[in-house]
Write a protein that binds this DNA or RNA. Structure first.
Lengths: 196, 196
DNA sequence: CCTACCGATCGGTAGG
DNA sequence: CCTACCGATCGGTAGG
């Protein structure tokens, strides 16, 4: 019985966080109001506070769920026995998959994290920097091994990560290619741009 | 004397718009307040309204200045006698230059245009769609002429435009390559990714 | 989960 | 360009 109650509360919070991600993506964190959010869910604004502590807590949930997801994946890839270019391919495809299946959370984390209060903001910021550094290190290894062109690794990371964020436009397009085609097109352009 | 007065008023408005671009970029349009903006300029909030009609008018100025800039450039490139790949090179470099020299306005137009009121929002939205369509048409011509890989043109446009927006991170980086190197790296990766 | 309400802050106006 | 102020809306709390 206790367990059931906890499960219910958790799923209620999950619902709020999910609706929050959708709203924050659409309006931006600053312009989204708790009354908007409550209306989308079908309750009064005050009722939200039985499940969450504050508007910022919703943003914290979104940002750190996304950060954990990508960090965990990076660990796996980094530990794998594969060439640098194969690792880049894995990372790129994971970013593409997440942007296709999990757009709202991923975009909100990417764009709205600056609204986090301390110490969350600093924590997220350093996780993000760290992720990009490790991504760049894999690229650098590929350059060293002559698999990849002698470009600036940090610039290449920046291009790839931002190119993937462009999938948002694909979601909104009226006539669009399939997710599979989208993935192959992106990988083709970006990996070929890097290869020597 | 009339002229001088007009010139003075315009430069005061320009100052507000420029400070607005900086603030909107930093905080987002929704989270930026007119009191913040006034403080940055060194006047009371009420005084801003002698030069502008509303907070939204600032956003309108930013968005349509940027739209005009890119549309004008696209006209020139489109009319030029050059191969498709050379045209893409010109467009890409223009986007890079604008992101280096004019980041704040360009990013605010790109990210905050949805806060425009009607009919500005619809107008801007259709200009943006139109620009991307014409960009894609040039790519499509390159594919037809066998200069460019048989990828989806809309996807390639999306990759390029979003990759360029990543220059924001370059601006914030502590150890960074020169603007010239940045440009060459981006062009290398993206153009080589497209070329057959 | 709701009603009722709070202090703070918002964009903007009146009047000088 | 300022002081003084408006109605609206914000995030959040009290109490049931």
């Amino acid at each position: 019985m206790g367990k059931l109650k906890v499960a219910k509360n958790e799923s209620r919070k999950d619902l709020i966080v999910k609706a929050g991600a959708s709203l924050f993506r659409e309006k931006g964190f600053g312009a989204a109001s708790m009354r908007d959010l409550a209306e989308n869910i079908g309750v009064e604004a005050a009722s939200l506070y039985n499940h969450i502590k504050s508007k910022n807590e919703i943003l914290e949930s979104i940002c750190f769920d996304v950060a954990n997801l990508f960090n965990t994946h990076l660990e796996d890839v980094d530990a794998a026995d594969a060439t640098p270019i194969a690792k880049i391919d894995l990372l790129l495809r994971f970013h593409i998959h997440q942007m296709i299946e999990n757009v709202e959370e991923v975009l909100v984390a990417d764009r709205e994290w600056k609204h986090l209060g301390e110490p969350y903001r600093s924590n997220f910021h350093s996780q993000r920097r760290n992720y990009r550094k490790r991504f760049a290190a894999i690229l650098q290894e590929g350059i060293k091994k002559n698999e990849i062109k002698a470009i600036d690794a940090a610039t290449a990371v920046l291009i790839m990560l931002h190119a993937v964020a462009g999938i948002e436009s694909w979601h909104r397009a009226t006539t669009k290619i399939s997710a599979q085609e989208l993935e192959e097109n992106m990988v083709t352009i970006l990996i070929n741009g890097l290869k020597k």
